[in-house]
Design a protein around this nucleic acid. Structure first.
Lengths: 153, 153
DNA sequence: CATCATGTAGCTTATAAAGATACATGAAAG
DNA sequence: CTTTCATGTATCTTTATAAGCTACATGATG
């Protein structure tokens, strides 16, 4: 199973959007994410529906943040994407009446639920602002060794 | 993405194997797991290579446990399956030179690593024997309400 | 030697993210 | 008001991988 990179991509896009003045078009973001404008619109749609970003049509249109990065957690983004499946492993449903299968699934389900809880708790504690500052730290670390690279491709 | 059910299936199969006298053929296990004998062999191969089960060819052959259920943890099984990918979400590699993407992936990677650690720790603490006893508990709970169902289909 | 069971190669199927094309909708510029 | 630009969305194709399946080789038992 190839992993779902939508969360990572949206975080990436949102931080770039914060550094731009004015709206970012789907085409610009697609360039940063090395993908297709339609994929950007499709993925960003959930964030718009949750009020995290706004979209404007026509000249000068595009995507803009609807609140500061410090007012968005990684969990907000994850949930706005529809809380996609977290785990690549899961229960079996080969013989749902089998008490052995039930016991296995129950036990495994508890372990996965605990891990899910750990992960979502952490995603809820980190804001996009924190991420942006971690980016700034990288930027400073690289100065003097690299040309000032903002990573916008 | 459909989730990988190999871990659940192998736990299911191993507990049934413990309750049988003699070897379990791939065809018998495939019946319990509602799948194909070849899938059973393919999945069981990793467990055999790790010394958790043995296989015998010919008449009376099949699969047998190589140690007691109390001497196998869920983590042992997970690792014998090749430690398959745990998470359905993951980093992006759209623009590996981008410091924003790097910061996002690093942060997300730490959160996932923490969740992975939580999960594997737990898998390492539960033995197949524990699972078998949980099955027994279910069996007792159901007695009087259901015919004694072992779940073998 | 006939039968049974594993071992394994190779192909097909199912599923979901991702990518791409086409076109409708709506907003701003001229 | 018409052109241009950008989103919104339907639809199809592509890709990756677990899973399923067929066929046949290998080896052990009776």
């Amino acid at each position: 199973m190839r992993s779902d990179s939508r969360l990572s991509r949206m975080l990436h896009a949102l931080i770039h959007m914060d550094r731009l003045q004015g709206a970012a078009t789907s085409e610009l973001l697609a360039g940063m994410l090395n993908t297709n404008p339609v994929v950007v619109r499709r993925t960003m749609a959930g964030l718009r529906d949750q009020g995290l970003v706004r979209s404007e049509k026509g000249h000068g249109g595009g995507w803009v943040l609807a609140r500061p990065l410090d007012a968005m957690t990684l969990l907000d983004i994850y949930q706005a994407l529809g809380a996609p499946q977290l785990f690549a492993i899961g229960p079996s449903s080969d013989n749902p009446d089998c008490l052995v299968e039930q016991a296995v699934n129950h036990c495994l389900g508890e372990a996965l639920e605990q891990a899910r809880s750990t992960l979502l708790m952490r995603l809820g504690q980190v804001t996009l602002g924190d991420l942006a500052r971690q980016f700034e730290a990288r930027l400073h670390t690289c100065q003097g060794q690299l040309p000032p690279y903002l990573g916008d491709g």
